[in-house]
Write a protein that binds this DNA or RNA. Structure first.
Length: 124
DNA sequence: CTTCTAACA
DNA sequence: TGTTAGTA
């Protein structure tokens, strides 16, 4: 598929899709007219790059993981070199998870307050 | 109308 | 990153 459809499908801007390619993370084929043509595998890689980015990884870190990204069974040779990176990212995600949990608790508190106000005004 | 590259508010 | 120009 072409860049427009992939962009809408993944929720990643065309600009970023081209940027990932520019940074060497993606290598979509080209049609005779020069249009980028993403096959299923390339589209999957794009999707995972997007997820990894959403998780907070920098493109440099993602580039290291690239050999392991194209799916399921990890490629252990290159992956061994980035074991430390993965541990570090896992730790970062754990921290973000705690922050998100804290944020969720705060929002829950707001909702409880709203409920109380609602009951108070409708009962009165 | 969609995509491409390059560049800039 | 968004957006835009001028093409193909």
């Amino acid at each position: 598929m072409r860049i427009g459809e992939l962009s809408r499908q993944l929720g990643i801007s065309e600009r970023m899709l081209r940027y990932y390619e520019q940074e060497g993370l993606l290598a979509p084929a080209r049609t005779e007219s020069g249009y980028r043509d993403y096959d299923a595998d390339t589209a999957l890689v794009a999707k995972r790059i997007g997820m990894l980015r959403a998780a907070g990884l920098k493109l440099e870190a993602i580039r290291e993981l690239l050999p392991c990204i194209l799916d399921d069974q990890p490629v252990f040779d290159p992956c061994l070199e980035v074991r430390e990176t993965l541990y570090k990212e896992a730790a970062n995600l754990d921290r973000k998870l705690r922050d998100l949990q804290e944020c969720r608790d705060i929002i829950s508190g707001y909702l409880r307050s709203l409920d109380q106000h609602h009951r108070a005004s409708s009962t009165a």
